[in-house]
Computed example of a mutant assay.
Amino acid sequence: MRRRALLASAVLIPFTIAVTAACSGGTEAKPPAEAMKTAQQKLETAKAVTIDLRADLPKGVNGVSRANGTGIIDEKEPKFKGQVTGVIKGNPAGVDLIAIDDKTWITFFTKDYTEIDIEKELSAPNPAELFRPSSGVATLLPATTNVKAGEQERNGQAVLQRYTGTLPAAPIQKLLMLGDDAETFDVTYGVDVESEELRSVVITGEFYPGESTTFTLNLSGYGKTVDIQAP
C-alpha cells in the first residue's frame, strides 16, 4: 500500500506543478494609462507599419470592407500603398491604391493608376492619414476613456494583452469620415506583451445610421519600410 501511495505521489506531483505553471504563466498587464502611452509612442516612431483593415458593411452602402498594405508614418508626408476592396459608386470592386499626403491614385477598372480626389468623389478617407502621427491611428489611444485591462490571448506566436474602453465619436469621424450620428464607440486594443506595440484595434458602433458595425484593424511589420512613389 505504501508503495502504491508513493507511486501515486510521484505521478501527481509533476502533474500538479505543470497545471499550476500553466495557470499562473503569462506577463502581468501593464496599467492601462502606461500601456496606451507606450503603444502610442511605438506606433508614432515606427517609420512604417503593415495594416489589414476589415469591416462588416451594412447592405446598400458605399465603403471599404477590406484594406491591406503598408503605410509610411510621417507627419509631413504620410504614405500608403496597398489593395482596397469594397463598394464604390454602388459597384463591388477591388482596387490598387497609392496615397501620398493629400493625393490618391487608384486602378478602378483600369490597369493604370488614375489620380482621384477620394474624399470628394468617393466620400472615403485618404488612407495616408492613418499614418500621420498628429491625426492618425495613434491619436485614438490617448482619446480613449475608461480603459480597462482584459484577458491575454495568443495571436500566432505573440501574446496580446486586451484593453477595452470608450472612444468619443469626434476622432472616428475625423479619421474615417463615418459615424456622424454616433456619440461614442466601443474599442478593444490588443497590445503585444513583449514589444508593447499596438497590434489590433476593434471598434464597434454606429458608423452608419441605425446600424452597428465593427471595424477591425490589425497591425504588423513595425519598421519594415517600402518604397512608395507617385505613379
Rank of each mutant, 00 (worst) to 15 (best):
A5N: 14
G150W: 05
E115A: 08
R54W: 10
E121R: 13
A93H: 04
P142C: 11
K47D: 15
D181N: 14
T188S: 10
T145I: 06
K81C: 04
E151Q: 02
W105R: 02
V95M: 00
T16I: 15
Q173W: 02
T145P: 00
P78E: 11
T45G: 11
P32Q: 10
I13G: 04
T214L: 13
T85Q: 09
T85H: 12
I72Q: 03
F207L: 09
T107R: 00
R2W: 00
N155I: 11
G71W: 08
A124R: 03
E206D: 04
P231H: 01
A170Q: 14
D112N: 09
I98P: 03
D186T: 10
L7Y: 14
S220Y: 08
P209R: 03
L217K: 01
K81T: 03
A29W: 01
N155Q: 15
F109R: 13
E197M: 07
G26T: 07
M177C: 06
A5L: 15
S24G: 01
T16L: 15
G94E: 12
E194N: 12
I88A: 00
L130S: 02
D101T: 10
G190A: 11
P127L: 04
P125G: 09
Y222V: 03
D102Y: 10
G71F: 14
E194A: 12
V193L: 05
G26P: 05
G94A: 12
T70L: 12
Q41P: 10
G223D: 07
R54V: 13
L130C: 02
S9D: 11
A39K: 09
Y208P: 02
I51S: 09
T216N: 05
S24E: 11
A182R: 02
D56P: 07
A143G: 01
D101S: 13
T70M: 11
A39E: 07
Y222C: 02
T16S: 15
K76L: 01
Q83L: 13
V191L: 11
G94N: 14
T50E: 15
Y189N: 06
I51E: 12
V147M: 08
G223A: 12
N68I: 14
F15Q: 11
R199D: 05
A8S: 09
V49F: 07
L140V: 05
T204Y: 08
A33L: 14
K47P: 08
Q173E: 04
M177H: 13
V137I: 15
I88R: 05
E194D: 14
Q157D: 09
T50I: 05
V61G: 00
D180E: 14
L140K: 00
R4Q: 13
G25F: 11
G71E: 00
V95S: 03
A158T: 12
A8M: 15
F80R: 00
V137W: 06
F185H: 00
S195M: 08
A128M: 07
S135T: 12
A67W: 08
C23D: 10
A5T: 08
V64E: 06
A138L: 05
V137T: 12
R66W: 11
T184E: 07
N146V: 04
E44Y: 01
L7V: 09
K103P: 10
G90I: 01
P125I: 12
L176A: 09
K47H: 02
E115H: 02
Y163Q: 07
V191D: 03
